[in-house]
C-alpha cells in the first residue's frame, strides 16, 4: 500500500497556488462573469462561456477567502511544531 505524504511546505504551496490562480482570473476580468448569479449575462459574453468563467472564478475566490488563510495558519502551526521538535 502506498503511503500518503504531507510534504513540508505543502500547505503554504497550496495557499500560494490558489492565490496565484485567483489573481490570474481576476486580471483576466472574469469577476464580471459572476453576474450570471443574478441571471444576467455580462455584456459581450455568451451564456456557456460566462457560466464556465463564473464557476472558475467563484471556486478560486472562495478558495482565496476561505481556504488560503486556513492553509497559511496550518503552515504556521507545522513550522512552530517542527521548530519545537528541533
Amino acid at each position: 500500500m502506498k503511503t500518503i505524504h504531507w510534504p513540508r511546505g505543502f500547505a503554504f504551496n497550496c495557499a500560494v497556488t490558489i492565490l496565484v490562480i485567483w489573481l490570474v482570473l481576476h486580471v483576466l476580468g472574469w469577476r464580471e462573469s459572476v453576474s450570471v448569479l443574478s441571471g444576467t449575462l455580462p455584456a459581450g459574453w455568451n451564456r456557456e462561456a460566462a457560466a464556465w468563467c463564473a464557476f472558475s472564478y467563484l471556486l478560486a475566490y472562495f478558495g482565496v477567502v476561505l481556504v488560503t488563510p486556513a492553509l497559511l495558519l496550518s503552515a504556521l502551526f507545522r513550522w512552530l511544531l517542527d521548530r519545537s521538535k528541533a
Binding site: T3, W6, A11, V65, P69, L73, F77
Partner: peptide
C-alpha cells in the same frame, strides 16, 4: 509518515476552525 499526514491534517483543521468563524469580520 502517517504521523506527518495526521499532523498536517490536524494543522489544517485547526486553521479552518480558527479562520472560518473570523471571516465575517473582514466583510
Amino acid at each position: 509518515m502517517p504521523v506527518r499526514l495526521a499532523l498536517g491534517g490536524l494543522a489544517l483543521l485547526l486553521g479552518l476552525l480558527i479562520w472560518l468563524p473570523c471571516v465575517h469580520w473582514v466583510f
